[in-house]
Structure formats: structure tokens, C-alpha cells
Design a protein around this nucleic acid. Structure first.
Lengths: 382, 382
DNA sequence: CTGAAAGCGCTTACAG
DNA sequence: CTGAAAGCGCTTACAG
């Protein structure tokens, strides 16, 4: 950090290039309207002075900040990171930057963030989730800017949405385990508290339970344990709690691959084979599940596409003379069941008597992850 | 998004409260200087109009944006996410927000980001890494704001730094494996290209090699394979390449736990026992390594503390009448070797003849992760 | 404790 | 294709 020699302004550039400040401004915002020789002169002056335009001043007069606020539950989940990257990538074309905040799954924190974000005058707000405090809804509604709720399909959208149905994800998971012949089926996810809650995870659990009931099975083993996020550790603990309740459980759905992986490691520690004794599946198609051994059956969502679709929607909404009515209000990116190695058909013999496969047999497994069978579930629901 | 009824300004509030705009401004920026009854009147007007101050205008006149630019390699790594959260947490006290960008480990992209960020007039820039293009260095130097390089201890700091020595991390890892009696020792990490490069990972590899040589061992098995980031998949592929080169390798250091985990899964697929046949360790103390079975030996860094220390440094630097000279130029947060289950002493018998432990024996392992032994390595190097 | 004046560095909306 | 005037919504720096 060198002692700043007063930063050059547009005025300085204009004097050096012997034009008006307006012409300098045009060189940056609409170069084609400036005659080539003039433009060259300006650019040379810019270069010579090391001039950087002041976007704060620009934003004040144009009433456009080229900021999009992004509210995420956490900065440490790679799926949300992919969404942020997908969004940033698309918005880059409009020189728009992300203002990212995180809530740690707390609606009160979300409200605090919205209050901190709106005075920055973002051109739009993107927010993971559809459950908000009343004040948040009011603030967002009055802000007069596009709001996109992502990673869900909200019952009562604030404005627009890009995501998929977590409820249907749960149902698809249950369908898969039921189709494999399992009957004692459980699920694990965090508790759903009013303030600290992963509503998407809970919707998956609800969908899962609904499908079990529809199949005439008990949903008593759909278990909520511990607090969000659905981490590795959460999974390890929750599977322990589930096993205490039902040692004979045959198949388990975890609301996240991270939890599923934690559960699988805990089962390994206890000498319980997956999928030999318990079938296990997760959600999110995280890399850990793709690479784990056995490879994790999961339901994948294109996290990057959620960001990209949101970005595309926003660009359409924010461009000059945008026809708001012509921009879709809702995008369903769907999800995909990815069957890998942690789920297997229920064996004929009762679970408890089943023999564990030997290590030698395990060692004979294919050397690379099985190519996933992909099942199209729902895509671009109109 | 409701059609905006012209947003209320400070002027509107001031009229309703029958004070000057200056008084309204003071209620927000320095409430104590306003008489209580006046303040109440203003607050009531603010409430009534649903007024939100315009921070863009505020920033232009105060020449303070309350933004800190944060440049990270990626948004999908939980360690950098923790750093961002630690930084955001501290800066929250000054109502300062993060402007986060990512480079995907490319210095050219870093330069692009710096050019996009500086015109937004951040009060400071925080940047992961110490290798930059010449243009980046110049831009940052001329910006006249504090710059903090994090996650390293730069040889030629731009300004200030908060991190640790990646080189020493590599040395500590090698020391650990050597102390266990191993002789055929390897390491895996991504290739170091001029533009696309994880310099921190590479410094760890260099430190690792240097320690091997110091111990009179060969560094021929320090292998660079594939591109950054050092992901699960990178680890799975790289260990394959290493094994092809040296099937008799006894111990391996991966530049990241993610890579170490990918390697461990690949070894499992091949029926090679960890740590029975190969000792394996990683870096970063990621949750996956903590929860994996066997639990991963690693070198941990307090990612959140890097963010928090950076935030504290910045607050000191940015406060009114800051005494720049009194703020430390460099903080070394150190690192910690965490010995868990994937590293073991070299057995007496030659590696290739060693018997794999049976699955039953594996099943008898302790049910929960072994409490890590923590070794203090370096902390707060003055 | 409160306020009137000036200005932060741009862009908008004309005008020529 | 270029420019002079006005203004975006605040805060700074006085003054009283």
C-alpha cells in the first residue's frame, strides 16, 4: 500500500485528452458513439494516468449498481458454491458482481442480511430458500427490484424462482428404496426448528415420508436429529440414533450426501456392511459420494445450472427496456436419481442373519467407480 | 417485486421530522450527537416512510464504501469458505461487507478480478496467495488501500499478510512419515503451470521434498499430476499414477485431505490397506478426513482464524486516525499435525509381503474416531 | 445540539 | 459526434 497520490478523475483524463468529461464517460459506457481518433486519445490519457473509473459515483448517477445480492445458508457447501459460480459466470457479461452473505440456516440472520444488503442498492436479490420472516418479505417486496428464490419451488413465491421440488426429491428417494424391495425404511436429517432450520432438507424428509405412507409402509423411522447443517458429523450421529431406535432398518435416505457419507463411515466402524446389510442413499451428488467406496447412490441437482439460469433470468429482467412479462417466472431444473453402489435389492434372507461379504470379496470390486445409471426424474417442468 | 413508489430519501424523512437532512444523517452515523427527542422524531419518520439510507450516495460523499474485496481461488472449498466467514464475522461490527470473487487458480483471472474490483472502491483487498501478475501488483500497489495476502507467508509481500508457511507444512508432513520409519515415501499434488497453479500446494510439495532430501531419502516420488484443484478425483488419479511408478511406496502425503481421501478410496478399490500397506496423510483438516474410516492423519490450519485475524488487522487499519505503523504487518497462524488412523509405523516385514488385515479385524476398530493427538507446530511466529 | 452550503465523481437528458 | 448544465443522495466541514 503506497501513499495515494490523489487518484485521477474523469476530469483529469478529459483535460489531458482535450475533450469533455462526457466523452470520457462514453468511451467507457458506449465506445461506439465516440469517433475512433477521439477514443484513441482518451484511451491513451486513461493509460497514461492509470485512471480507473469510480463505479460508486457511476452507480449513484445511473441508479444502477451492477450488484446482485446473493443470500446463501453457508459459504462452506460446495453445491451452493457451484450455484454462486454459475451465477457469477453469467452476470460477468454485464459487469455485475455478487454481494454474498450467509445465514447459517437462520431466518433471523437472513432478515439482518437483507437489511444490510438493500441499502447497497443491489439491482436484484437472489436468495436460497422460500421461508422468510414477515419483515423480510415486506422489505423485499418494497425494494422494487427482482427477487429470485432458488433451490426450491416456493408455494408462495416472493417474485420469481429457480429450483426444483425438494418434496419430490424425497418421494423419488423413497420410491427407489421401495422398488429395491426394502420394507423397514428410514431417513435422517436435522431437526426443523422455527428459527434454525434447513427447510429444503425438511421438505425432502416430508416427501420421503409421504411416499412411504403411500406404499403402505411406516414412516416412523423418518428421523430428525441434531441441528443443521446436514454435515458429515450430523450423519454419523443421526445414523447412531436411528440404529438405536431400529437396529433392523434395511434402507436409509440421508438428506445430504455429506450426512450419508458420515453415516456410512459410522456403519463401517460398527462393522455393518453397506449395501450388504443396509442400503444407503443421499442427496446432492457431492464429489465425496462420487468418489467414496462404495460409491454413493444419490439424487443429483445441477447446482451450477441453478446459478446460470438465475443469471440468465436476471439479465433479461435488468436489461434496458426489459419486457418483464416475457421473462419466465419460474424455472424447474429438475433432479436426477443416480444409482451407484450403496443401494442394493433386499436379500431373501432376513437382514440380521445376512453374512457380511469378506474383505477379499470387497477387494475384488471393480477398480473404478461404476458408471452411474441415470434416471431422468423431472426436468424443465413447464 | 412490486412497482416501486419512488423510494423515500433523507430529504423526505427530514421534512416529516421537521429537521434538516444533516440531523437525519447524524441519527444513522452518530446517534449520540443528536438530542434524544429529536432522534425519536427522526426514527419515527424513518419507520413511517420505510426509509432505507442509500449507502451508494453515502459512500461517494464519505469516500468510504465499507466494502472489502476478497479474492479466493474457488467458492467450493470449505476451508476458504471458513476463512470468508471468519472475516465477514469480524467486519460485521463495522457494517463492512465482502465483495467475493474467485480465480479458479489462474493468475490471469486474478488480474481480471482486481481490475473489476478496484473501480468499486473497496476499503481494502484480501487475496489468497502471493503469486500475482506484474499488472496485478502494480494495480494493487497504486490503489492506496490496505492489501492482505492470506494463506501464505509471502517472500515479497504486497503489503500485509496473514497465513502460515506451506513449505514448513510440507516439511512437517515428511518429518512425520520419516519418523514412522518409512523410506519409500511419495507425495501427490497437481502440476504447477505458470498460469494455472496452486502455489500453496506446490510449496507444500517443495517443503516435503526438501525434508526427504535432508533425511537422505529420495524425492523422486514427489509427484505432480493433473490440474488444480487438488480434489477427490485428483487424488484418486494421482495415486494411480504414483502406484504405477512405485508399487512399493510405503507412505504418501497428499497436498489436500480431499486428494488424500480420493487416494484412499482408490486404494480401497485396489484392495490396498491403509495404513496397513500404505500410510497416507493429507492437509487441511477437512471434515471428510475427520469422519472418514479410517480417520485421516492431516495437518490442520485454523481457516476461520485466518479470516478473523485478517478482519482484526483491517479494522485497526481502517479506523479513524489509524496508526498504520502500529498494526502488525504479518501474522503467522501456524499449523498443527493431527495424527489419526491413516498413518502407522513401518512394519518389520517388507511391504509387499505384508498380510492385509481381515475385515473382521477392521470391524473391531474403535467405534468412534480416535481422539487426535495434537502436535503444536508453529504459532504466532513473531 | 442543529443547519446551510458545497461537493463527492460520475451519468442523464438535452442541445447543437 | 460532442458538450454544458443539472442532479443522483448522501457527508464534510464549517458556523452558530
Amino acid at each position: 500500500m503506497s501513499r495515494p497520490t490523489q487518484k485521477p478523475t474523469m476530469r483529469d483524463v478529459s483535460r489531458l485528452a482535450r475533450v469533455s468529461p462526457m466523452t470520457v464517460s462514453r468511451v467507457f459506457t458506449d465506445p461506439d458513439t465516440v469517433a475512433a481518433p477521439t477514443r484513441e486519445r482518451v484511451l491513451k490519457a486513461v493509460e497514461q494516468l492509470g485512471y480507473l473509473p469510480d463505479l460508486v459515483a457511476g452507480a449513484l448517477s445511473s441508479r444502477r449498481t451492477n450488484f446482485v445480492g446473493l443470500i446463501l445458508p453457508t459459504l462452506t457447501n460446495s453445491n451452493f458454491g457451484d450455484t454462486a459460480q454459475g451465477l457469477a459466470e453469467v452476470l460477468k457479461a454485464d459487469a455485475t458482481q455478487l454481494l454474498i452473505g450467509y445465514t447459517l440456516y437462520q431466518v433471523a440472520e437472513e432478515e439482518r442480511l437483507v437489511r444490510a444488503l438493500l441499502p447497497r442498492r443491489p439491482d436484484a436479490i437472489v436468495i436460497a430458500g422460500s421461508v422468510h420472516t414477515a419483515a423480510t418479505r415486506t422489505l423485499l417486496d418494497r425494494a422494487g427490484i427482482p427477487v429470485v428464490e432458488i433451490w426450491e419451488q416456493p408455494d408462495h413465491p416472493l417474485d420469481r424462482a429457480v429450483g426444483f421440488s425438494n418434496f419430490e426429491v424425497g418421494r423419488a428417494a423413497a420410491r427407489h428404496l421401495i422398488a429395491l424391495g426394502h420394507r423397514r425404511i428410514g431417513a435422517i436429517g436435522p431437526e426443523a426448528d422455527a428459527d434454525l432450520c434447513d427447510h429444503r432438507a425438511d421438505a425432502r424428509l416430508k416427501g420421503f415420508a409421504s411416499m412411504l405412507r403411500e406404499a403402505g409402509l411406516s414412516d416412523a423411522l423418518v428421523m430428525r436429529h441434531g441441528l443443521p447443517p446436514a454435515s458429515f458429523e450430523h450423519g454419523a450421529n443421526a445414523i447412531g440414533a436411528l440404529l438405536a431406535l431400529a437396529p433392523d432398518v434395511e434402507a436409509v435416505f440421508a438428506v445430504s450426501d455429506l450426512a450419508a457419507f458420515g453415516a456410512m463411515m459410522e456403519l463401517k466402524r460398527r462393522g455393518i456392511d453397506v449395501p450388504g446389510q443396509i442400503s444407503l442413499m443421499g442427496f446432492g451428488n457431492f464429489e465425496v459420494g462420487r468418489l467414496s467406496y462404495p460409491a454413493m447412490t444419490t439424487i443429483g441437482v445441477d447446482a451450477r445450472a441453478i446459478g446460470a439460469a438465475t443469471g440468465t433470468m436476471l439479465r433479461a429482467l435488468l436489461k434496458r427496456d426489459a419486457q418483464e412479462a416475457e421473462v419466465e417466472r419460474n424455472v424447474d431444473v429438475g433432479f436426477t436419481l443416480i444409482e451407484r453402489e450403496t443401494t442394493a435389492p433386499r436379500p431373501a434372507a432376513p437382514a440380521k442373519a445376512r453374512k457380511r461379504p469378506s474383505a477379499a470379496a470387497a477387494g475384488d470390486q471393480p477398480k473404478t467407480a461404476a458408471a452411474p445409471r441415470r434416471t431422468q426424474a423431472a426436468r424443465e417442468t413447464p
